[in-house]
């Protein structure tokens, strides 16, 4: 395909700049071979490019510039680190209260899901249990049920607490007499508070699920074939033992020997 001088003049620069495709390049080359005028034009264009290149060779940038750029990039790095740190700080400030709320919420949910603490959980100290036992013993709160018959008390609580309530039966020789019982809470667990008249004094017993509320501490003594944990607080004696998964915390203003005797012979 032949090109006119007009076309050649228009695209001679693209030709020299290597912007033509091979067909265009071939067509223009063919024209240049046969046209002295366009050839001269091309030569002048080429010399101009050469002159420009010659006058502006690639010279190395000053070493000081290289150094300046390095310092400027260091500064940009430092600035970026500062920005990142600032962003982190802002997020932390925003996130900490949110995380606390979430943690509390999760903790609450967890405790609800867990229900009563299992036996393997943290044990309650006998000392703190004794405090409550003595408190109730001293105040002698009104009874839910007054009965002298242990079976009657057991029947009364059969649908009220998740464990069998068998009030201890003390030996006849002790002249202990069941007075009554009421629903109670030991820690966050259901319990039954039972009181007795023994001679001129009183005996109170907290009956609870010993699997749900394990107790530790106190001095362990043997009484009637049982291990009894023993705690003395402000003149009161508290003895704790368990039988068949049921815990008994016995509080009395009797002397220690009398209470051990009582527990040893109870069933």
């Amino acid at each position: 395909m032949s090109m006119s001088c007009d076309d050649v003049r228009k695209f001679i620069q693209a030709y020299l700049d290597g912007e033509l495709d091979e067909h265009e390049w071939a067509a223009l080359s063919l024209h240049l071979e046969s046209c002295a005028s366009c050839r001269r034009e091309a030569r002048t264009e080429e010399r101009l490019r050469r002159a420009v290149r010659r006058s502006l060779p690639l010279e190395p940038a000053p070493a000081s510039l290289r150094q300046r750029v390095g310092t400027a990039l260091d500064a940009a790095d430092a600035e970026r680190r500062e920005e990142d740190a600032g962003r982190l700080r802002r997020w932390t400030l925003r996130l900490v209260p949110a995380a606390a709320v979430i943690a509390l919420g999760l903790g609450f949910l967890w405790s609800r899901l867990q229900g009563p603490r299992p036996a393997s959980g943290l044990k309650t100290s006998l000392a703190s249990l004794a405090e409550q036992s003595i408190e109730w013993h001293r105040l002698s709160p009104p009874m839910d049920v007054t009965a002298t018959n242990p079976e009657a008390v057991q029947r009364y609580f059969s649908d009220k607490v998740p464990f069998a309530v068998r009030p201890p039966v003390f030996p006849a020789g002790q002249r202990a007499r069941l007075v009554g019982a009421r629903l109670a809470n030991l820690r966050e667990h259901r319990a039954v508070f039972v009181t007795y008249q023994v001679g001129g004094g009183r005996v109170s017993v907290f009956i609870f699920d010993s699997n749900a509320l394990p107790v530790a501490g106190g001095r362990v003594v043997r009484a009637g074939g049982r291990d009894v944990r023993w705690q003395e607080v402000r003149g009161y004696n508290v003895g704790l033992y368990s039988a068949g998964g049921t815990g008994y915390a016995v509080t009395s203003d009797l002397d220690p020997r009398g209470l051990v005797q009582l527990i040893a012979h109870s069933h």
Partner: peptide, 27 residues
């Protein structure tokens, strides 16, 4: 860097401004 500096020099026609320009552009 050399090419950028050369171009900056021809754009600004001033050595100090050319160096500032290269630095700003690279950052």
């Amino acid at each position: 860097l050399d090419a950028l500096h050369g171009m900056a020099l021809r754009l600004t026609r001033d050595e100090r401004q050319a160096e500032d320009l290269v630095q700003d552009a690279l950052v």
